[in-house]
Each structure stands twice: as structure tokens, then as C-alpha cells.
Simulated assay, not measured.
Amino acid sequence: MRILWLNWRDIKNHEAGGAEVLTHEIAKRLAKKGHKVTLFTSRFQGSESHENIDDVDIVRDGGKYSVYGKAKNYYKHNKDHFDILIDEINVKPFLTPKYVKEMPIIALIHQISPEQFTYELPFPVGIIGRYFLEKKWLSHYNNISTVTVSESTRKSLVELGFRKVSVITEGLSVIPLQEAARKEDTFTITFLGRLKKHKLPDHAILAFKKIREQIPNSHMNVIGDGYLLRKLKKMNIENVTFHGHISNKEKFNILSRSHLALIPAVREGWALVVVESNAMGVPVVAYSVPGLVDSVQNGINGILLSQNTPDEMANISISLLKDESKLRRLTETALQYSKRFNWDSTTEQFEKILLDNT
């Protein structure tokens, strides 16, 4: 197959997240299977307009907002070179059902984004986006074969009128440890994610503040970058280290020596950080929200909170840190849980959907 894949970011974009990891891991495996994969995406500072990464052809044009119009133009001038199109939707869709008539479309949606509109955009734009724009945009995809990564998102899409939704399992880009690594001598908590409002990094830090009241020598790592970094630093919570954007090697080293990972959010598609933490022998304490209720198996690879508040996150974390045997069991089962996931299986599932639609 000759595949045209549209996404707003690629794996080299400094704002790339779990969605871009999935895109790249699947795309490079499809390329190795003999499919020709072209990813059309936006430009970013220092990027090349054309690049080949792991046998995937990357074409970059336009910025964060103009990439959608550039993608439409690219399609119109190159449609004869492709057999199928993947429209990956992250908040704003490419709206390909309005102009792609010559080939099948597969929509790839990690999560719907009602909360992101109101958390990330000013009033009244956020309200318009949440209650009108998203529903209007996505209505164009009701009869399009759609792929998502969690049962939570599938249910949300069906409620919006989608008729053809398949769920694929997520993979894992790091090899799980054979056994949990030696932990830091002092209790260490880690938050991993983009520092944006809808990720609620401030909730994790507030939870740690309360943890320190009970366990004064504990330490927190914050791994990730974003516009909230300066504001979070101004919270002036002691024993918190902000690492910013770091290499995977550094990230996994820090994770492996942590006792717990805190994952608050308003909504996730799945949250790769859950199984990445588990693969390093780190259980998670997470909010009970769509996406996290799919990736966190309560009592196996982490704990889902009954109340999504910093206080409850702190209380559960403290109880785990003070119960050595329970924390050790949860660490072991979390590590075993992570070994279920691999990108080869994910790619097989995704490829079957592509073949069934061509």
C-alpha cells in the first residue's frame, strides 16, 4: 500500500507526545513490511521540509494552524501517488471527508478533547470549541472507519454518532526491566508529561507538598516541558527538581529509581507514560478519568483514585510509601503488566484495518 498519513506533529517535533510515538512506531513498521508511508506534518524551528526517518518519508509544511490547509493542497497535487489516507485527529481534524473522494480514509483519534478546549483556550473560544466546534468537526467522520486506542474513547465517539470504531492496543518503546532497579534511598516521586493545564502537573506538585508533610525527606522529579514551567517553579515547593525535556535514556534512568509516578489529567487517550513507568518497575497513582481507567488496572499496575484531587493523590501515595510489602508487590505486578505491550502487535492490528478498507 501507498499510505498518506496526516498528523499535526512528527516524532522530532519538540511538542511531540504519546500520539506521535504511536504514529512513528506503527509507520516505521509498516514501511519495513513493504508499504510506502508518507507522513505530512507541520514545520517547527530547525526542521527540514523533507526527511526520511526509519524508512518513513516526512514532508513538512505549514505551522501549527496552517498545516491543515497545506495538507489539503498537498493531497490535491499528489493524490495519484497514494492508495489510502490516514487522518490523525488531535483536537482539530484535517476534515478530509470534505475533499478526499479518490481513496479510503481511516480516522485515527486518540481522544476527544472537550476539556482541552476550556482548559487551554480563553473564554469564549474554549466554550465554543467544547460545545460546538468539536462536535461539528467530528460529525464529518461519522461514517468513516475510525481507529482509537481505548474503550473510553470508543464509547465517547459512539456517543457522538461514529458508526465504525475499532480499538487497537498501545505498544511500548522501551524494553521492560528484568527486575525492578535499586530505588533512591529517599522516597522519590515522578511526574512525567507535558506541562500544560489539561495535564494537571500542578495537582501532582500539590500532592507532593502534602506527601512531604508526612515524609519530609521525600523528593519529586518533574520531567517534561511546556508553558506552565515558570508558573510551576514559582510554587516554590521544596525538594522538587524540574528536568525539562530530556533524552529517553535520562528519563528512564530517573523513572527506574523512583518509587511512584503521579498521573493526574482531565482526560487521556491512553497515557503511554503509565506503561513506560511500569516498564521501569514503577507503579502509578492516577486520576480516574477516561483513558487512565483503561491503562491503569487498579491494584495491578497502579492505583486509581476514588476522588480526583491532590489531597487524595497524596493520601494514597503516603499509604503506599509507608507500606513496604504492598509497594513491593505493586512494583512487581506493574513490571509484569508492562510486558504485555509491544508495537509489533499494535502494527499488526492497524495493518489489518488498513487492508480491510482497501
Rank of each mutant, 00 (worst) to 15 (best):
P176H: 04
N73E: 14
E88G: 13
M235E: 06
G17E: 13
S306D: 13
Q111V: 09
L22I: 15
S306L: 01
L22A: 15
Q307S: 13
I86A: 06
N239E: 08
V273P: 00
S317P: 01
I254F: 08
G281M: 07
H50W: 11
P122S: 13
K183I: 04
I26V: 15
A207W: 00
N142F: 13
K98Q: 15
A16L: 09
D87T: 10
K197F: 09
Q336M: 02
L39I: 15
D225R: 12
R43H: 11
D323M: 02
R163T: 14
G171Q: 03
A314I: 02
K249R: 12
I353P: 11
K79R: 13
L305E: 03
S152C: 00
M235Q: 08
K98N: 14
L195I: 09
Y227P: 11
K210A: 11
L305P: 03
E115T: 12
H77Y: 13
M313H: 04
E268Q: 00
E88Q: 15
R29E: 02
V56Q: 10
I223T: 00
V37Y: 07
D356G: 11
I175F: 12
A265G: 05
P201Y: 01
G129T: 10
H81F: 10
F123E: 10
S47K: 08
T358Y: 14
K155P: 01
M280N: 08
I106M: 08
Y287C: 01
E351F: 01
N52Y: 14
T38Q: 10
N217C: 04
L6E: 03
E88S: 15
G126P: 07
H203D: 11
R257I: 07
G281Y: 00
H245A: 12
K92F: 14
K196I: 15
F94K: 01
A207C: 05
T169D: 14
Q349N: 05
I353W: 01
K28E: 09
A31N: 06
K32H: 12
R194E: 00
T118I: 15
A16C: 06
I84G: 12
E213I: 10
L95S: 12
R194V: 05
S113T: 14
I246P: 03
V165D: 07
D80W: 04
E348C: 07
D202M: 09
T96Q: 06
H50N: 15
K32Q: 15
K231M: 08
R9P: 05
K197C: 04
S173C: 05
I11P: 10
A181Y: 04
I86W: 04
D202C: 05
G129W: 00
G171R: 00
T23Y: 08
G224L: 03
I128Y: 14
K183Q: 02
V56C: 11
V37L: 11
D61W: 08
G62F: 08
R9W: 10
R154Q: 15
N52H: 12
Y68M: 04
F44G: 07
G126D: 10
G299M: 00
Y141F: 14
V293W: 01
T241S: 14
D356W: 09
V37D: 00
V274K: 02
G291E: 01
T41C: 09
E120Y: 11
P201M: 04
R60T: 04
S166R: 12
P114S: 06
K28N: 08
L229M: 13
K155T: 09
I168H: 05
L354Y: 11
F123M: 09
K197Y: 10
V21Q: 06
R212G: 00
L30D: 02
E20V: 06
A279G: 07
S319R: 13
